[in-house]
């Protein structure tokens, strides 16, 4: 199946070897994520499809939107029409343009906060779980403090202090307040792993703690890290939207949260449904897509959750 480099003696063979290594790494990752299982989960692929749609809109949508989405016009609160596909706001801004442009900021800030939180939780959880002793005591104390601090109010307080010139302060606040749950889960998983034979064997093989934690333990927890990343991203997106909705973000930026903020602020929630319904629905759909992906990943971590094979399900639905 693969072009194995059997002639190790030739230096010329080394580029091929590197690509072999890359291939084996990808193969490893695929085996780890149990790729062959994935297609069975319709929920997972639905989620992937929805997420892909939002990513495509965020990436390429702005190419089709001409003009400033914040530009005022005389069509105040116009209902959806051919000219304004999703109507206009109180000040005559095109809702469709705002929705497409806003996708980028919402997705980007959500995933960025997810990356920050996941990185923190991986470092804190794995290191404290593996090292044990006083290092574990200190890191667990910090984790517990962040666990009991109510995240949303802290985010509100912090974001009212930092200058809201861009979306990034919110990203950092959300990232820094949402890593503790993931750290707890990863710590307990690491505890179950650190006394297993293959970790002990690595120790006898002379590996240092850093290599054991991030090269021996982490690859075995990759499904949990991925799942934790997605969960944190959902939470980050929702927190970012809520903060913007409360007017604590940069209110001039075009994002779904700000659209909801202005819609609510103008007191038109009862009349202009086209203003707040599209961003609200988009948030819900984006959250669901990530949740679907997470359920799919769950069935890999815990095969007991696997659905009945689709053949049987089809029959049952037909009855």
């Amino acid at each position: 199946m693969e072009l194995l480099n059997t002639h190790g003696g030739k230096p010329a063979a080394s580029p091929k070897q590197t690509s072999n290594n890359m291939r084996s790494m990808i193969k490893n990752l695929a085996a780890k994520l149990a790729m062959p299982q994935l297609p069975k989960s319709a929920m997972f692929w639905t989620g992937i499809g929805m997420l892909l749609f939002f990513i495509l809109v965020a990436a390429f949508g702005p190419l089709f939107i001409h003009g400033d989405p914040n530009a005022f016009s005389n069509d105040s609160l116009a209902p959806p029409s051919v000219k304004h596909l999703l109507g206009t706001t109180l000040t005559g801004q095109d809702v469709f343009s705002q929705l497409v442009i806003g996708a980028k900021l919402t997705l980007l800030s959500g995933f960025a906060a997810g990356v920050i939180a996941t990185t923190l939780s991986v470092i804190m959880g794995l290191v404290s779980g593996y090292l044990g002793g006083w290092a574990d005591d200190v890191l667990s104390l910090i984790t517990n403090i962040f666990l009991v601090i109510p995240g949303a109010p802290l985010a509100i307080v912090l974001s009212s202090y930092v200058p809201n010139t861009s979306v990034w302060p919110i990203v950092f606040i959300v990232g820094l307040t949402n890593w503790a749950w993931g750290a707890r889960v990863l710590r307990s998983q690491t505890l179950t792993m650190r006394d297993r034979d293959f970790i002990q064997a690595s120790k006898l093989g002379g590996e240092n703690n850093f290599r054991i934690i991030f090269f021996d333990i982490m690859p075995n927890l990759i499904a949990i890290v991925a799942s934790s990343f997605i969960f944190t991203t959902i939470y980050a997106i929702l927190t970012e939207i809520s903060l913007s909705f409360l007017g604590l973000g940069n209110i001039l930026a075009v994002s779904w949260g700000n659209m909801l903020y202005w819609a609510q602020n103008s007191g038109t929630l009862l009349s202009a449904w086209w203003w707040f319904l599209p961003p609200g629905l988009c948030v819900a759909l984006l959250g669901s897509s990530l949740a679907f992906i997470n359920f799919g990943l769950d069935t890999i971590v815990n095969p007991k959750l696997m659905m009945v094979p689709s053949k049987n399900r089809g029959k049952k639905a037909a009855e």
């Binding site: 080394s14 297993r196 034979d197 293959f198 690595s202 021996d216 690859p219 990759i222």
Partner: peptide
């Protein structure tokens, strides 16, 4: 239980060789 499910046989054997004997080049290691 004693082999890491996430790593290939190459990795399992390469690591002690790298650590204890400082195998220099990739071809030597192989």
């Amino acid at each position: 239980a004693s082999l890491n499910a996430a790593h290939s046989i190459r990795y399992h054997l390469a690591r002690p060789l790298q650590i204890y004997h400082k195998a220099r080049t990739k071809t030597d290691l192989e």
